[in-house]
């Protein structure tokens, strides 16, 4: 589904990604871990098409298409979803309006008729329940005045609405209390099918107790220096990254 080869990217002339290779297939869950500043969020941003980053080398193929040549919105419509580490507030724009536009843009891309008001509201209610999001939140402005936990729940709610083929969740667990973590992680797990895939970027093993990864990758200094199964995450929790970094050095 996603094939990344030798991906290099920089911001303001500083190279952050220095040759990423990664293959994601349908039905898989991948976890990307690594110390601060290793390039995890940059990888997510580059895949999403954030214009701040410049790709200097390498390829990324998503569902057979050159991902790097697609516009941000085209990537999204084709089924790429980024769960933001810091969801953005959009004052005055209601969640309902925002999501209706997003859902219908995706439907249009897939050659489907837009959802009518009734169908849309029904879908929104169902999906809000799914992540235990207070349905009243959907009438509020996007992320405005939401608590940290609500913002993260709202990311997963949007994921549930858009049903992406590939979701990259950038530190979705940061700033969550135990209950919110459970709700968010359970939501992600329930959305997982044999047809889609998830990349979870995290610092902590505890998220992976809920979202069980098939593969765990360690990103350091802009490259994947080690890959393994979920046991790797447990070892990192116990021993930190030093043993891997030393090898690297």
């Amino acid at each position: 589904m996603l094939e990344i080869k030798n991906l290099h990217a920089s911001v303001d002339g500083n190279e952050i990604l220095r040759g990423i290779d990664l293959t994601i297939r349908r039905g898989e869950v991948h976890a990307i871990m690594g110390p601060n500043g290793s390039g995890k969020s940059t990888l997510a941003s580059v895949l999403a098409g954030n214009p701040r980053f410049e790709v200097s080398e390498g390829t990324a193929t998503f569902l057979g298409r050159n991902l790097l040549e697609m516009s941000i919105e085209e990537r999204a419509r084709a089924g790429f979803f980024l769960g933001f580490q810091y969801p953005v507030e959009i004052p005055g724009v209601s969640m309902a309006n925002f999501m209706k536009l997003a859902v219908n843009e995706k439907r249009k891309y897939n050659g489907l008729e837009p959802l009518g008001a009734g169908e849309f509201l029904k879908l929104m209610r169902q999906r809000a329940e799914f992540v235990e999001l207070d349905p009243r939140m959907t009438s509020r402005a996007v992320n405005e005045g939401f608590s940290g936990g609500e913002k993260k729940k709202n990311e997963i709610f949007q994921m549930a609405m858009l049903e992406p083929t590939l979701a990259v969740l950038d530190e979705t667990d940061s700033g969550l209390d135990i209950d919110a973590l459970r709700v968010v992680a359970t939501g992600v797990t329930r959305l997982h099918t044999s047809e889609n895939a998830t990349i979870v970027i995290t610092h902590y093993q505890r998220l992976l107790d809920y979202i069980v990864p098939d593969f765990v990758h360690v990103l350091y200094h802009g490259r994947i220096i080690h890959s393994g199964d979920r046991e790797l995450a447990l070892r990192l929790e116990e021993q930190g990254y030093d043993w891997l970094i030393k090898n690297e050095k």
Partner: peptide, 24 residues
Amino acid sequence: EAIYYMQQRGIDEVEAKALQMSGF
């Protein structure tokens, strides 16, 4: 950032700007 956020949800730049302006 808000425009990028909206684009990441499938809304094109023109529409995202219009939505933000409407919100204002």
